[in-house]
Simulated assay, not measured.
Amino acid sequence: MTDNVKAALLMMGALAMLALNDTAIKTMALTIPLFQIVVLRNGVTTLALGFSILRGGKLPRLSRRDLALSLLRGVGEVGAAYFYLIALVAMPFANVVAILQSAPLVVTLAAALFLGEKVGWRRLSAILVGFVGVLLIVRPGTEGFDIFALDVLISVGFITLRDLATRRLSREAPAMTVTAITSSMVLAFFVVLGLDEPWVPMSAWSIVLTFVAAGFVLGSYLTTIQAMRIGEISFVSPFRYTSLLWALLLGFVLFGEWPQALTLIGAAIVVASGLFTLYRERKTGQPVPQGPEVIQALESRP
């Protein structure tokens, strides 16, 4: 087995763990306020990330520029997580993840508009085709339209902010430190969000699910880092789209959800457009430095 194949399997495993984290949250949100779930989950993950950083001995330092960019990407992650989780609780799992697959397309377009990155007519055409796929999933103005789909689109906007900030980070920015800052900002936001809301008692099963969700998030971080270290980024990155397969499987098995035909067609168009855009970016564009690329991969979903 080559290193690239090992890395691809690790990336698929990381996406499976993120899907299981989402499943745990979606299950618990039936009886527990969303803010309470996120505070407990991110409390565990933030403490674990902080412990991992301190265990390394010397505390990694960020330059002022990287610190400012880390805070900006934290704002993006807070907004992305808030709107994504609202939609996740209310919508079919696969529908949410299908719309979320448009994020790389939006990031590519935004990078061209705001960062001056070159986007040729082929990639631009793929982005436009991808947006058609999003319209097939969302179907605005029809009976199949779900208002919560707008929350996912807003989440995509915040993901774009997060990833643009990530692209501007220096190669020396420590992935774990940047991720810990992001996780702590999400934790602080949901703590403030829940100040006026009462906490509810949790069953032993809910407590277990909370720690399981935190474990899956941490596991996905470690697995992704390992995947990016041993494999070629251009080979490994397309396997992020397997998250849609996990969402389809878990949504059907655990929640009895199956998307409509138009949603599946739209999702296929979005994924195909994203894969083509990624192919063209790796072939003709300037690759993102590996440090920021690892950080970007760590949080492929809110």
Rank of each mutant, 00 (worst) to 15 (best):
S184N: 00
T108V: 15
M1V: 12
M12W: 06
S155N: 07
M176E: 13
L69P: 08
G266A: 08
F83H: 02
G130H: 03
R64D: 13
L59Q: 08
R167Q: 07
P292W: 02
G141W: 12
I225Q: 10
P33S: 09
I233S: 05
T142H: 14
M91N: 06
L169K: 01
F148P: 11
T263W: 09
M1S: 14
D151K: 13
L71R: 04
A16H: 04
Q290I: 14
G116Y: 13
T179V: 11
W199N: 06
Q286D: 11
L254I: 12
S155H: 01
A175G: 09
I181E: 02
G266C: 09
A173D: 01
R61W: 14
R162T: 00
A87N: 01
A81R: 07
A81C: 07
E197A: 10
L245Y: 06
L49P: 02
V192W: 10
D146R: 15
Q290N: 10
A29M: 10
V152K: 10
G13V: 00
S183C: 05
L40D: 10
A29R: 14
L85E: 09
L169Q: 08
A180D: 02
G291F: 01
A29F: 12
L150Q: 15
W205D: 12
T179L: 13
A24M: 13
T2I: 09
L250Y: 00
A24C: 15
L278Q: 07
A173W: 03
G194Y: 05
L18D: 00
L164A: 03
P140H: 10
G194H: 00
A80P: 06
